[in-house]
Amino acid sequence: MNNISERLKHDWFILANLVSKDFKLKYRRSILGVLWSVLNPFLMMVVLALVFSFIFRGDDASQPFPVYLILGTTLFNLMAVSTTAGANSIIEAAPLIKKIRINKLIFPLEKVLFELVNFALSLIAVAVVLIYFQVAPTLNLLFLPLLLLYVVIFSVGLSLLLSALAVFFRDIIYLWSVVITAWTYATPLFWPINALPEWLAAVMKFNPMYQFVTYFRSITMCGVPPKISDLLTATASGTPYVAIWQTPSLKANLICVGMALITLVVGFLVFKATQRRFILYV
């Protein structure tokens, strides 16, 4: 037992070292450095908000639109970037795997944790947008760590699966970038869910990213009135308005946990079953 905890402690130390290495390398020789982790999602949001404000007219559920947008894209980005990096992680670590005895789980895990750090920084941009649009924080924000846990588990699961498969078939890496693009448009990041016909909206429930993104919007925009006009009529008539974003229910949590865990288990099993042969193929 002692041995296992010792080994875990050591794996953690390696992880921390690799994450800090990636972080140092990412912004070396850039003037703004770490600030880019904040600026990037912010600028992306501005571009997208400009583009999509003209194409789609946001409706009740997606007001204020820039908030709706930045919440969706930053969270989706966490999954997209970490799984893309994760898919490459074992091939990239080939020199290490060939030379030293090391727990190979570390590499995909490291990529996801590194992106989690970047995500934490991009939350600053999210906060700025929230303040600008005067979306007041509520206690619901306390759900955020829970949500991040779900998304990290989900991304780790995918990364494990992809990195293991990519060792044997490099196609996976190219394929995955296409999947991510398709997934980006298939998830209501830029458009509201009620733009879909009913049957498609039902199918959408099986999209884990839809569940996570909705969760994120719920806890952040909870209690935001749908429309100023609705708010005015509501106060005038004395009846409370119906908020669209509500505290995530137990059911929503269970769905998120379930999707994350199933992905993790599948990824882990595939990784475990194949990791012995990595060294022969990388």
Binding site: K9, H10, N17, L18, K21, P95, L96, I100, I102
Partner: peptide, 23 residues
Amino acid sequence: AGFDLELTARENIFLNGSLLGYS
């Protein structure tokens, strides 16, 4: 193993040391 040539020697000592199993 695991030297990253972009990093300084100081940083690499910690990185490589951790990979070799030192605390």
